[in-house]
Design a protein around this nucleic acid. Sequence first.
DNA 1: TTGATTGCAAATATTTTGCAGGCAT
DNA 2: ATGCCTGCAAAATATTTGCAATCAA
Lengths: 148, 148
Amino acid sequence: MNQNFQQKILVNYPNWMDKLRLKGFRITRPLQIVSEILANCDSILNPSEVYLQAKEKYPRIGIVTVYRTMEKLEQAGLIDRVHMPDGCQSFFKASSGHQHLLVCQNCGKAEYFEGDNLNLFFKNIGDQFGYKINDHWLQIFGLCKNCQ
Amino acid sequence: MNQNFQQKILVNYPNWMDKLRLKGFRITRPLQIVSEILANCDSILNPSEVYLQAKEKYPRIGIVTVYRTMEKLEQAGLIDRVHMPDGCQSFFKASSGHQHLLVCQNCGKAEYFEGDNLNLFFKNIGDQFGYKINDHWLQIFGLCKNCQ
DNA sequence: TTGATTGCAAATATTTTGCAGGCAT
DNA sequence: ATGCCTGCAAAATATTTGCAATCAA
């Protein structure tokens, strides 16, 4: 909730609406609310958490709409499901490119990091076992500065 | 279901019973059945799949027991939860050491691979973002030889 | 105006809990 | 004999679907 936070709203959010429009989705109030929350949060969020936050801005929203909206955001490539040791109900805004994530086990704060040079390594592992590689996940868990 | 398969029963299974005994669990028939299935399968399995296989050998088993038994196996470090893009209900026998997994998206066949040299890389990422790293996941998805 | 989207209620699916009886130790 | 483990039923969670009303385009 700092300067960066405000900035991200201005930069990312209109972009999200464009992509959603392009996908043929209608820009409704619930969709805007849910998008805002996810576009501007630097931690992973599950549907109930999004629902609770959304209710504050738009009390008549239902959790079903949150589920359906998050599905659309995922389809549009705007958010990704994040897998944690104890579950995988949470989502985080997608990065353009890699999906290498560093997540705080306590508060859920997340950051993307670079790991381009790993692609060759993955291909090699695939060859070694006779697999045709389609995708990979690299995720690191720990405690962020605030939670240590 | 080849030569290796039979061999793994002989090598791993007694070891599993020892570890379970050591943890203070009682060696019951349902626990043996569920252990056998998981110890000897080279694909990831979810509780319902284990349940179906278990029922063939021991019809009176209930799915609740499968859940509870798999929880024990996880506690004993004998199986690990495996996360896939579409869910994380499946488990796979644990490796001694790393948890770097290569999984077939079609049939669930899985293999562990080496990636020791990555630990330093992970530590560096942690330092860079101010996180204290506790754990990591590296998983590769693709199609195995049979499923290509 | 048109049909995609919403919110409610209900249905599914998945996992957990309570409890009396059974079985490993 | 003790008390952990089992299987059933029921409860708790999480997610999806049906449908009439609403609202973006």
